[in-house]
């Protein structure tokens, strides 16, 4: 996993609540057995017309957002299906940070497994960012060590993030590797459980 420490980038806005993972990556693209190459299908049904042409009314098709790496979104972003393909698509498209007032649980988890940083800010702060992002070329700097988001023009917000997840993201650590360091504890647990639950615990 690529570490994320400090990130500076162009902000794209998606002004909708409850954006679900079916929207982020429609199911017809879930049949692939690889992890890469999902960016081209991100928000497919919004991004393209039924004829397959880019839909000019969809924000990510506006030239001003070309190259955006920070997505500003609304409440309950990433709800619905557990498909990690949603995160793979956002990442592959070029996003490294998503800012919203709230995220759906599984999506939030999936982000951290892939080096995408979901940042929860207060509804007021997010409203303020939406106002500021109306300006073309609006950029933000996210500092994971300091846990801050700022635009160099007066907006500064601090965000909370679980310390362990932060550390893993800062160092680009693989979860499985971390867990396997606890092998002795896992083995001991299995021995104890088996003694008590030999019937259920096959």
């Amino acid at each position: 996993m690529e570490p994320l420490i400090r990130h500076e980038g162009l902000v794209a806005v998606l002004d909708r609540v409850n954006v679900d993972t079916d929207q982020i990556i429609p199911k017809q693209f879930l049949k692939r057995v690889a992890r890469s190459g999902f960016g081209q299908f991100l928000f497919y049904d919004w991004r393209y017309t039924p004829e397959g042409e880019p839909d000019p009314s969809f924000v990510l098709n506006h030239p001003r957002y070309a190259g955006a790496s920070i997505l500003l979104a609304r409440d309950n972003f990433g709800c619905g299906s557990s498909r990690e393909h949603a995160v793979w698509a956002l990442e592959d498209y070029g996003f490294r940070v998503i800012i919203a007032p709230s995220f759906a649980d599984i999506f939030y988890n999936n982000c951290f497994k892939n080096g995408l940083l979901p940042i929860t800010l207060s509804p007021d702060e997010v409203d303020e960012l939406f106002r500021r992002a109306a300006r073309e070329g609006y950029r933000l700097t996210v500092d994971l060590r300091e846990q801050t988001v700022e635009d160099g023009d007066g907006f500064v917000a601090r965000f909370e993030v679980d310390p362990e997840r932060r550390m893993r993201l800062l160092e680009g650590l693989d979860d499985i590797g971390v867990t396997l360091q606890h092998e002795a504890a896992i083995a001991a647990y299995e021995r104890d459980r088996k003694a008590v639950y030999q019937n259920v615990f096959r």
Binding site: S82, R83, E84, I106, N109, N110, K113, D175, I176, T179
Partner: peptide, 10 residues
């Protein structure tokens, strides 16, 4: 509960 593919691997 539901999990993502990285967690499936985990």
């Amino acid at each position: 509960f539901g999990i993502g593919t990285s967690e499936v691997e985990h």
